[in-house]
């Protein structure tokens, strides 16, 4: 569908869409207020009618950290690259929870908002996009607890901490890309809703959150392991924040970036292909 602006009125052309266009950027920019309001709605509504409210954004990673520290760090004695285990796991859990929350919310976004989809036109991609944006806030709310832990354990970031915004961006891009795939599939197959919690759990164990990636020593396995873009992201986030880096891990950054972008682009293409059927099938 093409929309062009003429001085007097907006002319809309309605016809069957063709081709492999990835995303209509112009239209997306025009919908920025909608993106803003949907994000704002998700944020406003998220902790309504809870006693602890936004504190949940902190409690969740901290409780997981406590559980991991007791079972993995304490009982199982999982090595943590020489970093105190609670700090080690929390530094992995924060970017991971950003990823997981974004992915979960984005994946369910279309079915949750089905009444909007069947009744009104807007670029459908704003739904997964705004749920990802709303998930970022929790990450920043939980951030100070990590800083507090670093002070407690006397760890400070070095110059490579400048890479952190990029790691956050990679996390969001990957989550959004996977979210595009799943949200579009969720329209057709409600099975997705059941698969996601399991998949997130599996994915977390395939990411060095509870253990250091040094445990994977077989080079063949290592290659497969590194196909998970979150491996590079979590390792990078942790190492740069805790000042462990001695040099920029160019290879890992490039590799993770390529895979994230592949996921994003394929997600956009798939979403676009399915988009026109959403209102009929949801």
């Amino acid at each position: 569908m093409n929309v062009k602006n003429v001085p007097e009125a907006i002319i809309t052309m309605i016809q069957p869409s063709k081709g492999w266009k990835i995303v209509d950027l112009k239209e997306l920019i025009r919908s920025r207020e909608l993106i803003f309001f949907l994000t704002w709605r998700d944020l406003k509504v998220r902790y309504k009618q809870t006693i602890l409210g936004v504190a949940w954004a902190v409690i969740q990673p901290v409780m997981t950290m406590v559980v991991f520290s007791i079972f993995f760090g304490g009982l199982a004695g999982v090595p943590s690259d020489g970093i105190p285990y609670p700090l080690f796991s929390l530094a992995g859990l924060l970017p991971w929870q950003l990823f997981e929350n974004s992915l979960r919310n984005a994946s369910r976004s279309l079915v949750t908002n089905r009444n909007m989809i069947t009744k009104i036109y807007f670029p459908r991609v704003v739904l997964p996009l705004s749920s990802v944006l709303a998930s970022i806030v929790d990450f920043f709310v939980a951030g100070p607890i990590l800083i507090f832990m670093m002070i407690y354990y006397h760890y400070s970031p070095n110059i490579y901490a400048l890479l952190i915004p990029y790691y956050i961006l990679l996390t969001i891009v990957t989550a959004f890309g996977v979210g595009l795939w799943f949200s579009a599939m969720d329209v057709l197959y409600r099975d997705i809703g059941y698969i996601i919690p399991f998949l997130c759990q599996l994915w977390m164990y395939l990411t060095p959150i509870a253990y250091g990636s040094g445990m994977i020593s077989n080079p063949k396995l290592q290659f497969i392991y590194n196909l998970n873009p979150m491996v590079g992201v979590v390792n990078g986030f942790r190492s740069s924040l805790l000042g462990v880096y001695a040099a920029v891990p160019v290879q890992s950054i490039v590799f993770s970036s390529i895979i994230s972008i592949l996921i994003l682009v394929s997600g956009l293409v798939y979403f676009r292909r399915m988009e026109k059927q959403f209102a009929d099938l949801i």
Binding site: I10, T12, I14, Q15, S17, I117, I120, K276
Partner: peptide, 21 residues
């Protein structure tokens, strides 16, 4: 524009608001 036509086209001049929603 909630759903696409299978064939054919339409041209609409102006903002469409609907009380479907």
């Amino acid at each position: 524009r909630v759903t696409e036509p299978t064939v054919g086209s339409a041209v609409i001049s102006g903002r469409v608001g609907s009380l479907l929603e």
